[in-house]
Amino acid sequence: MSETGNKTVSAGIVVIGDEILSGRTRDINVQQIAEFLAPLGIGLKEVRIVSDDQDAIIEAVQALSARCDYVFTTGGIGPTHDDITADAVAAAFGRSIDVRADALAILEDWYARAKTEVTTARLRMARIPEGAILIDNPVTGAPGFQIENVFVLAGVPKIARGMLEDVAPRLTRGAVTQSVTVRLEGAREGDLAEALGQLQIDYPEVSLGSYPWFQETEDGSITRGVALVARGVDPEALAEVERALHRLAQ
């Protein structure tokens, strides 16, 4: 794994699956991938959720691959008819796809140890685009793969998380983003907007956000306030902004 110093390294995620869009399945891969990448200095910049539609997957993968240093896809690489991610990613890069000997050997070994037959359906999980690099799957054996800057992971969160361990050494580290939070009780966003806007102009390298909060007290009344969050890679600038945020409370 190489490092880029203070360079920002970006990532995008394409979440694939009708079950996510329908609300039947709750996605947690975005959160776990973002949390995995943050200590590596890789910031998540964009997430798309698309259906099990080849054209939609191709468009999303191509768009994010062009805009981000790395792209992660989750879902759609299983043994069923609607698992079309491998075909779509291959098409996005103009690659052919077929059962590959190294992927097949992994599946055959895995299922032999489990005393399970490698059926025609399971063979779909050995179909790998031309020139792709396999991603190890320590949970269920069936590999993911990498084409250029795109990493194709399983949709099951535990499997996706296991695959990330094999991906990590391939990634270039960026500058790690730090954050500070200042909670102002009794404050309202509208009263802070002008000052925050000016602070953002003064420190363009720091990302500023304001998030209202409400809390019920023991007597049933509601207290309110605003959490001010500053994020950046320059510790000196971040410290100056933190001091300025504290002054807003005075």
Rank of each mutant, 00 (worst) to 15 (best):
S22H: 11
H81I: 14
A60I: 06
G43C: 14
I13Q: 10
D18I: 07
V9A: 05
I13R: 11
D82W: 07
G23M: 07
T73K: 07
G17D: 05
P39H: 03
A11V: 03
T73P: 06
D18Y: 04
G17N: 07
T85M: 04
A92R: 08
D69E: 14
V9C: 11
V9H: 02
D52Y: 06
D52L: 05
T74L: 03
A86Y: 00
Q62C: 12
I77S: 04
I33M: 04
T74E: 09
F72I: 13
V9M: 12
D27K: 02
L44F: 09
V15R: 11
Q32F: 12
T73N: 09
I20G: 01
Q31W: 14
E35P: 06
T80I: 12
V50Y: 03
I16C: 02
G12I: 02
A66P: 05
I58H: 05
C68T: 12
L64A: 07
R48V: 14
V15W: 04
V14G: 10
G23V: 06
I84H: 02
R67C: 13
D83Q: 11
T25H: 10
G78Y: 10
A86K: 10
R48C: 11
G23W: 09
A11M: 04
A66F: 14
A60C: 10
V50W: 05
G23T: 03
D53G: 09
I77Y: 04
S22C: 05
V14E: 11
G23I: 04
L64Y: 06
G12E: 02
T80G: 08
V89Q: 07
T85R: 01
T85Y: 01
T25N: 08
I20H: 02
V15P: 01
I16F: 05
C68N: 13
D53L: 04
R67N: 15
I16Y: 00
A60W: 06
S22P: 02
A91H: 03
A34H: 09
Y70G: 03
G12K: 05
A11Y: 03
A86T: 07
I57F: 00
D69V: 08
D55R: 15
L21P: 02
I20P: 00
A38Q: 15
T73R: 09
G23H: 09
Q32M: 15
G76V: 01
G75S: 08
A66Q: 15
I77H: 01
I13A: 11
G12W: 03
A92P: 12
A86V: 03
P79S: 06
G41Q: 08
C68L: 05
A90F: 10
L40F: 11
A38G: 06
I20T: 01
S10W: 10
I57T: 00
A38V: 08
H81C: 09
D83W: 06
A11G: 03
R24M: 12
G75E: 06
Q54Y: 01
T74K: 04
D87M: 09
